[in-house]
């Protein structure tokens, strides 16, 4: 499916040239344009300023703009590369590129490590893992006793913390993920491959913007 460059269309603040973004990512120019349609939709869902804010991100993920979630917060913070509280278009495309089926596994492993390194210490600590397990249980409305959570975390650490220093470093993480590839399942979005075929309406809309 072809697409027409949208040079004449009005763009939101933080807009970047699709040819530049395509050159830096696994997306084609057409796919970047299709992503721009998705971005516009998300960034106009509440504040209509062309920037994705936390509430808009939560609305898209949970159909509820007030739904706080530790993991959505972490994803939002990693997408917000400039750390200014909003996701701009270029940040959106570059970050989603990590989830592209053609992106090397090493990049996905590194992204997942950053995601779980809650306090940016360069390690995944036992307390962080426990906090994440409790957050997941809370989100799912499940209750497990502290003892059970402790067993789950302990068992995971016994497998992942091969150096036995009580924390998981990037090398240990890489090794652990290679033994448990299912852990990276949510780091790949099949939708991102040939976006314009999966979302033909986005491509059509980008042409109508002309």
């Amino acid at each position: 499916m072809g697409c027409i460059p949208t040079k004449l269309a009005k763009h939101t603040p933080g807009y970047e040239d699709p040819t530049v973004l395509a050159s830096e990512t696994s997306f084609s120019v057409c796919e970047v344009e299709a992503l721009y349609e998705l971005f516009k939709k998300l960034s106009h869902s509440i504040f209509k300023d062309g920037l994705i804010r936390k509430e808009e991100f939560q609305l898209a993920l949970f159909k509820n703009s007030k739904r706080k979630n530790l993991f959505a917060d972490r994803i939002f913070d990693l997408f917000d590369i400039k750390r200014n509280g909003v996701i701009e278009f270029g940040e959106f495309v570059r970050s989603l590129n990590v989830f592209h089926p053609d992106t090397p596994t090493e990049e996905k492993i590194a992204f997942a490590f950053k995601l779980y390194d809650l306090r940016h210490t360069g390690y995944i600590e036992r307390e962080e893992l426990k906090e994440m397990v409790f957050a997941l249980l809370d989100e799912s409305g499940l209750h497990l006793s502290d003892d059970v959570v402790e067993v789950i975390v302990e068992k995971t650490f016994s497998q992942a913390d091969s150096k036995g220093d009580g924390r998981i470093d990037p090398d240990e993480w890489k090794e652990f993920v290679s033994q448990n590839p299912a852990l990276l399942k949510n780091m790949t979005l099949p939708y991102l491959k040939d976006m314009t075929m999966v979302f033909p309406s986005f491509a059509v809309n980008s042409e109508l913007d002309e």
């Binding site: 530790l70 917060d73 893992l129 397990v133 497990l144 975390v153 949510n186």
Partner: peptide, 25 residues
């Protein structure tokens, strides 16, 4: 058998990590 689960496997099920939802919005 939740105790048999890998903690990372458990947390990877979070809806907050399921970005496919961005496309359904």
């Amino acid at each position: 058998q939740p105790a048999a689960m890998n903690a990372f496997e458990l947390i990877s099920m979070s809806k907050g990590l399921n970005l496919a939802n961005l496309f359904d919005s």
